[in-house]
């Protein structure tokens, strides 16, 4: 069966499974025998995007590597909510060392496995955005530069949620956090370039860099599978909305990830050896307001008097992404400028 045929399967196109498809053509998550790398009973908040993202990624990685996966985890929500003594939610080989060193720990594991002649066992490192773009960047850059055989996954929820929602280098402009309150002339987080880790990763010219979200499971799984088919340093940046930190409804986790992509604020693409090779075009373009107004962290931009000027700057950023990555839908005319 080809992908063109799949078009006919209305439901199967974007949902996890489809009764009309052969089981091996369904998503990993639709497989009743999926690994459940992180299982029930973890202490993540209701509607946690990171718990979801981690299971999506690791289950796909486990399938791709036929079970031969070892995971290193940075300090953060994911580590804390999954391993409070005496219970662990992990069902795969898993180690946690520190906040800022997971890339190096993973490099060490990969080196050990290579020295042991067990390179069929693959290494996945995972961290939140703080553990990736801020405190973990040194080790991560080293891992990239050495092209160690590690898939590094950043679950980006755009702040230090574990410690009470402080700003990270991945917090978007204008967002309210515990350290960027909506007070003063420039409410919320500052406007800056941010740390665009996918592009920083691309600058290392590593074999594979991709972005994805929990809103497009099939895309995410395909990227994990692709990443696992390559050796060397690989980077996957997954947007995982956080109901706590974003002050959003727990049911809206996937919806927000979807709106982040459909507004252009979060470009979904993949790159090989530093060159963008594919982008996921926007299907149903929405203004950034659709995304922002569902989140309490942007509430100060709306209402009376609101900050339409700030919203316009955020929209300009989304528009820039759309031009930069060519995200416009096929028939859509995107104004440049």
């Amino acid at each position: 069966m080809t992908t063109t045929d799949l078009k006919l399967y209305q439901i199967g196109t974007f949902a996890a499974g489809n009764r009309l498809l052969d089981p091996d053509e369904r998503s990993v998550q639709a497989d009743p025998g999926r690994a459940n790398a992180i299982t029930s009973g973890h202490r993540a908040c209701q509607g946690c995007g990171e718990a979801l993202g981690a299971r999506f990624v690791l289950d796909a990685a486990i399938r791709a590597a036929e079970g031969n996966i070892v995971t290193a985890n940075a300090t953060g929500c994911l580590e804390v909510f999954s391993t409070p003594y005496p219970e662990s939610a992990w069902q795969l080989a898993w180690v946690h060392s520190l906040f800022g060193n997971v890339a190096a720990v993973a490099s060490g594991i990969a080196a050990a496995l290579k020295a042991q002649g067990r390179e069929h066992i693959r290494v996945v490192a995972q961290a939140g955005d703080g553990g990736t773009v801020d405190i973990g960047l040194g080790c991560l850059s080293g891992m990239f530069e050495r092209n160690d055989d590690v898939l590094f996954v950043c679950y980006d929820n755009q702040g230090y949620m574990n410690t009470g929602v402080q700003r990270s280098g991945a917090t978007p402009p204008a967002a309210r956090t515990a350290t960027t309150k909506p007070v003063g002339v420039e409410p919320g987080n500052v406007f800056g370039q941010g740390k665009d880790l996918p592009r920083i990763a691309m600058a290392h010219e590593i074999p594979y860099v991709a972005t994805a979200t929990v809103a497009d499971l099939r895309d995410l799984e395909r990227k994990v599978e692709k990443a696992m088919s390559v050796h060397g340093a690989r980077y996957l940046h997954v947007l995982v909305p956080c109901p706590l930190g974003w002050a959003s409804a727990s049911k809206d986790t996937i919806r927000l990830a979807r709106l982040a992509t459909q507004s252009g604020l979060f470009p979904v693409f993949e790159a090989e050896h530093g060159v963008v090779t594919a982008t996921t075009p926007i299907r149903q373009r929405v203004p950034v307001e659709d995304y922002l107004t569902l989140q309490g962290r942007f509430a100060h931009l709306f209402g009376e008097p609101g900050r339409p000027d700030v919203v316009a700057r955020i929209q300009a950023g989304a528009d820039r992404n759309i031009v930069r990555y060519g995200l416009a839908a096929e028939n859509e005319v995107v104004p440049h400028g």
Binding site: N101, V105, G108, I109, A111, A112
Partner: peptide, 11 residues
């Protein structure tokens, strides 16, 4: 950190 990972992996 790399030593920690490598040691945890049994090397």
């Amino acid at each position: 950190s790399a030593c920690i990972g490598a040691s945890a992996a049994g090397s």
